[in-house]
Amino acid sequence: MTTITTSDGTRIFYKDWGAKDAQPIVFSHGWPLSADAWDAQMVFFANQGFRTIAHDRRSHGRSDQVWADNTMDQYADDLAELIEQLDLHDVVLVGHSTGGGEVTRYVGRHGTARVAKVALIGAVPPLMLKTEANPGGLPIDAFDAIRKGTYDNRSQFFHDLTIPFYGYNREGAVISEGTRLEFWREGMMGGLKGQLDSIRAFSESDFHTDLAKFDVPTLVLHGDDDQIVPIGASALETVKIVKGARLVVYEGADHGLTATHQDRFNADLLDFIRE
């Protein structure tokens, strides 16, 4: 397996496809998945002449399962080490859901010297948790329920989560059992402790300061029927903070739109990158 070893000794698995001298696109996956969630995009963009890279977040997929430091700051630092060890420049950063938080915190902590563009897809910034200052967020009870479901019966919870994740509970939805099984497979590859820690990381991290540091072209793409990361407290707030950000809303689309709207998403992302 291809891995890097971070400064704290954690091995991070990554895939690296396409021409090594091409412009790199680095994909960051959502919770509780792995780099495999981006396979279709990696093949598509590699065939379009890009170098495509995706990693398994620490404690997810094939990366080391660590007890501590499953935090958004550490996720961002791991991403920075991946970019630096592969000596990537002119990078397009693409983050879905929790991966969008990882990418955003990377910019906040490491800047954009190596970054050309950023795409946030169904992403968690600026803050998922409902607070007095963030009344549009989700109550802590919602995240406590995710923690309980993951701890009590992770296998069943991940399988059930696919229904709202992909909008399969909506009228007219065509359910793909293969997609549900793939979500379950990727989720079950990760470590329970790290996945539990990650719930706090994606739900309680405040990205307002990080977003204010964005100074490269940014795409914010979201489904308006996202049942996992509601658009009101995420994308619609993010574009108020990131100067010049482009908002693209998929009407009726779900959280897993990179799969359920794969061709449209790939085309829109390609247009954004090539502009």
Results as ranks from 00 to 15, higher is better:
1 M>T: 15
2 T>P: 09
8 D>H: 06
10 T>Y: 09
27 F>G: 02
30 G>E: 08
30 G>Y: 03
32 P>S: 05
39 D>L: 09
42 M>N: 02
47 N>E: 13
49 G>N: 06
56 D>R: 01
60 H>L: 04
63 S>D: 07
66 V>A: 05
81 E>K: 02
90 D>V: 10
98 T>I: 15
100 G>P: 10
102 E>T: 10
108 G>E: 02
109 R>F: 02
113 A>E: 10
114 R>W: 00
117 K>N: 05
121 I>Q: 15
121 I>P: 07
124 V>C: 05
125 P>M: 07
130 K>M: 01
134 N>S: 08
139 P>H: 09
157 F>W: 15
162 T>A: 11
165 F>A: 03
166 Y>I: 01
166 Y>N: 08
166 Y>E: 06
167 G>Q: 06
170 R>M: 10
179 T>K: 07
179 T>P: 02
181 L>S: 11
182 E>I: 10
184 W>R: 09
186 E>R: 13
187 G>N: 02
188 M>P: 00
190 G>L: 09
191 G>C: 04
192 L>D: 08
195 Q>R: 13
202 F>M: 02
211 L>Y: 00
214 F>T: 10
215 D>V: 07
222 H>I: 05
225 D>E: 10
226 D>H: 09
226 D>E: 02
229 V>H: 07
232 G>F: 03
236 L>W: 07
239 V>E: 03
243 K>V: 10
244 G>V: 09
259 A>C: 04
261 H>R: 14
267 A>W: 04
275 E>P: 08
275 E>D: 13
